[in-house]
Computed example of a mutant assay.
Amino acid sequence: MVQSIGLPKEIKDGERRVALDPSAVKSCIQAGFDVFVETDAGVGAGFSNADYEAVGAKIASNADDTWAADLVVKVKEPQRSEWGFFRKNLILFAYLHLAAEPDLAQALVASGIDAYAYETLEERGGLPLLAPMSEVAGRTAAIVGAHYLASGSGVLLGGSAGVPPARVLVIGMGVAGTMAARGARGMDAEVTGVDIDLHRLYTAQQEGTLTATLASSEHAISEAIQDADLVVGAALVTGAKAPKLVLREHVASMKSGSVIVDLAIDQGGCVETSRPTSHSNPIYEELGVIHYCVTNVPGQYPKTASRALSAAVVPKLVRLARDPGDSALKGSLNVAKGEVVHPVVAAALSR
């Protein structure tokens, strides 16, 4: 039975988010749980130790004390230095992305921990704990894409009088892709959306989010990408590795100094030339194309992202603490009692 909740400080490169803001912590305490917050866990997002103490949290002096709780709630997947905290009967609730993290999956299995993933929790056909961060990441994609185009090809997204705007190709029109498209359109770029869902494409174009649409296929992408100044990869298959929709030869056909922002990199990336990067070293160049493949994009806007994530997580967290079998947690259990129990994640890892 869960009596205590631990909130560790995030240690991934450039990660300044926190899983629970003080308001969410207060909700957990009012629900009857003790909450241990690691010292300075919320400072990067603008929340002081005093803010947490004011709502009744207990400030833990180190990570050991927060990980000693019955249930640990995080933002990003545990880093290698945190794997030593894993133990039988501990419940973990965080973004895990295990299809792209086989070593982490093995560590979780070996420890006997019960691991619940935000990104596979399903509700009414959606992913309510992934959506808020997808929204932040999508909005960010247009910003960073525009920034790196300046140092790459020198193209301004919106163009100028007598100069055509940039061409942006968004692959996958879910939450992240839609927000990326909206951001690029807000800067007056020409935006083409690619998806397998024709109704989704139709709706996005009618709403003005897209200037053109493409039914997803290898041939369609290969043609459209040659003229693209900025490509945003946002394809998602829940729990599985992202499909490689942009092939190496597609990247080779792009103009020198163009930019790729692969928002699917947490799940392995949907671009064949993508590899994970960090906030410390966010980009690299391959085949003359700038690649931005940061695995925790929303971490650079920690206050907005933390508040959005916290609001989505806390009702599910309270349910998890009260009853791990609650139907509101459908799809979130990834590892239990030494086994990968989510079928899609298990299939991805076995491959």
Rank of each mutant, 00 (worst) to 15 (best):
A180K: 06
A181Q: 10
A181D: 10
G183T: 06
R185H: 05
R185E: 01
G186D: 08
G186P: 10
M187S: 09
M187W: 05
M187V: 06
D188W: 07
D188L: 10
V191E: 07
V194T: 11
V194P: 08
D195L: 07
D195H: 11
D197P: 01
L198F: 07
H199E: 14
R200V: 08
L201C: 12
L201N: 12
Y202F: 14
T203C: 05
A204R: 07
Q205M: 10
E207Q: 15
E207A: 14
G208C: 03
G208T: 07
G208E: 11
T209R: 00
L210Q: 08
L210Y: 02
A212D: 14
L214Q: 12
S217V: 06
S217N: 14
S222F: 00
S222Q: 10
A224W: 03
D227E: 15
A228W: 08
A228K: 09
A228S: 12
D229M: 06
L230E: 09
L230H: 07
V231C: 06
G233P: 05
A235C: 07
A235F: 05
A235S: 10
A235E: 01
T238R: 13
T238M: 03
G239M: 00
G239I: 00
A242L: 02
K244V: 09
L245V: 11
V246K: 07
V246C: 06
V246F: 07
V246P: 08
V246A: 03
L247K: 15
H250Y: 04
A252Q: 14
S253G: 06
S256A: 05
S256H: 02
G257L: 00
V259G: 07
I260Q: 04
I260N: 04
V261R: 08
L263N: 12
L263M: 14
A264T: 10
I265R: 03
I265P: 01
D266V: 01
Q267L: 01
G268T: 10
G268R: 02
G269F: 05
C270A: 14
C270D: 12
V271F: 03
T273Y: 07
R275K: 15
P276N: 10
T277K: 15
H279E: 06
S280P: 04
P282Q: 07
Y284L: 12
E285N: 11
L287A: 12
G288V: 04
V289W: 01
H291G: 12
